[in-house]
Design a protein around this nucleic acid. Structure first.
Lengths: 342, 342
DNA sequence: CTGTATGATCTAAACGTTTAGGAAAACGTT
DNA sequence: AACGTTTTCCTAAACGTTTAGATCATACAG
């Protein structure tokens, strides 16, 4: 490894001077000296050792990105992929590195907490971490700079980037109501997440707005996982035809996908027998058959924004929490039609 | 940040002793001293600063994972997701961190090369990097420990983890031939990758094995990108029915997906008019309509193996390049049937 | 010619670890 | 009692940077 000292010796100056050249600092260096040093740096292909820089108290230029342990398949998951892509986009453009953390949360004592305090990263982005996770509070108490994606907490100095879940669910439900559906089921998301309850709220608001009563027996609690989604879909679709909803709002595309599976197993046709709306517009939504009507979250932009917010708060002297909510769009595809039409 | 020195002072010993306690080194520490120090460490929630450790020459316990700049959507991509998941699985189990690199290769001078030499990572995993990329040679010359996924190079001390592309393509083609197809097209993968030419080779081998001549006009050069795949699919499917292949082997599922799109635009039915086989078995393959017959690569296992190989070579004193080729499986679904059947 | 301001560079301490070598105490052997 | 060995712990240097302060030469004002 070629070091600063080697450069200094090779170009006949002190390490300090080399450092000033490298960092374009406030100290002035004679142009010809600068030239000479730069040439040696070029020749020997020198690059500052991050460990040493980090130790000396400078930034480490690294973002930590953490995914909760609940998510078994974080990168397999079409939801996390685009978010991560957005983060990496911005990080790369800003010459920051991205470090991945998984299986976080305080489960095994304070091991994980301390993982965040070993000087590896300048700041953190937490994706879809439960709002109650004590990690958030502990870390922010220690002064860690962090951005939460898809989670909103009160009273803590942390920034948040999220989608407008309430509005998205409202639009989706309104779409179904306006097609003429009156018996609409909902397969809900994780109740300990921010998005789950919010999407249910939007579902209710839409009903209220159109003066249609919500049939409480059609609100199925569920989770963003295949097994739970399968069961909930089954509960809803196996009802006798007169009680079965004519339309279903699935709180996530992955849930909707399970509904496709269950429907096909039960011989129920989409959209002839039941209309379906999802949420997220993940990559495969358009390739389902029929293509899924869903609420598009700008996942990649969300990731990019999170990285931007983090970067800015690292640059800034005083920490100023930011709260950014992205608007969502209903993407109409072929999985919905008016009820009773065959 | 709580430091070793603080622990030392608080427990009335020297920093050396604390270090010995923390690292369970060969030096012996009186059990009661150890107890006392451990208690203080616990209380103050101390964790060694990685920067300092890295500087002192110890391992940094970080894997660098690099994706080539050609891949626009690395994490969106269903291929990279599972590989990354496999890597992270193993890394986490071994208490290693994972750092992401994108847009690599030497395009802008030696900037990227030096990025790998700043002491951030102990070793690297390169996914799908072109075999000719000069980065590989330069890095290995500098003694970097690295594992290549999906790329094979000769004469360099680097490890490789890959799938048996030739065999997979052979199986896929054999499947089509044995269904009775005699006019089979292939949409080829990137010619500068390892997998592209290998899959084409398997395609040829199968023909040879069954004594069926290859129609060279049905070998379409293409790339693993949607626009190229669209064009190639069009070239093949827009042929007059008597010249058009009755079956197509797409060198990647993402290419096959484009073939679905083009077929539907041209009013060509799958599998009635043309059978289709893909390669990779990415997540959406089973959700295409009809579900895609494809060659399953154990992507997650491949990622896990790459991480394991890297970890082992970091532990070992002498570097011993490893070459691991995974077997693949043909997954039969509904996108194929004998020709002429309606 | 002296005093002072300016500009270019250097010296050396500091960051938080690890670890070779040494010191002190305790113990065993003759 | 003298010596060697073992056990336990400490001192201090080293890793590669950054940066405050010192130094030295030069230029300029009086």
């Amino acid at each position: 490894m070629v070091t600063l000292k080697q450069i200094a010796r090779a170009s006949g100056v002190s390490t300090a001077t080399v450092s000033y050249v490298v960092n374009d600092g406030p100290r002035r260096v004679l142009p010809e000296t600068r030239e000479r040093v730069l040439k040696v740096i070029q020749e020997l292909n020198y690059r500052p050792n991050v460990a040493a820089q980090g130790l000396r108290g400078k930034r480490t230029n690294t973002f930590g990105v953490a995914f909760p342990h609940i998510v078994t398949e974080p990168f397999d998951n079409v939801y996390f992929g685009p978010i991560l892509a957005g983060i990496v986009d911005v990080a790369t453009a800003r010459r920051q590195m991205t470090m991945l953390f998984t299986g976080i949360s305080l489960e095994d004592g304070d091991v994980n907490l301390s993982l965040f305090c070993d000087g590896r990263c300048d700041g953190f982005i937490f994706v879809a971490i439960p709002a109650k996770d004590p990690l958030i509070e502990k870390l922010s108490r220690r002064g860690a700079k962090m951005v939460l994606v898809g989670t909103q907490v009160q009273g803590l100095p942390v920034s948040t980037v999220d989608s407008d879940n309430v509005e998205g669910a409202r639009q989706a439900t309104l779409h179904l109501l306006d097609l003429g559906h009156r018996r609409i089921g909902i397969i809900q998301g994780n109740c300990d997440s921010t998005s789950g309850p919010e999407r249910t709220l939007g579902f209710r608001l839409a009903h209220q707005e159109r003066g249609v009563p919500v049939d409480e027996s059609l609100l199925i609690p569920s989770r963003y996982q295949d097994d739970a989604a399968y069961l909930s879909s089954y509960r809803l679709l196996s009802m006798p035809p007169d009680r079965r909803p004519t339309a279903i709002f699935a709180a996530q595309d992955s849930i909707a996908r399970m509904a496709y599976t269950v429907a096909s197993e039960l011989g129920i046709r989409i959209p002839e027998d039941v209309s379906l709306v999802g949420f997220d517009d993940v990559a495969y939504a358009r390739h389902l058959s029929p293509p899924l009507t869903t609420v598009r979250q700008p996942l990649r932009e969300i990731g990019a924004e999170a990285a931007t917010v983090l970067f800015n708060s690292l640059e800034a002297d005083a920490f100023e929490p930011v709260r950014k909510i992205f608007q969502v769009d209903l993407i109409e595809r072929a999985s919905c039609r008016p009820p009773g039409l065959t």
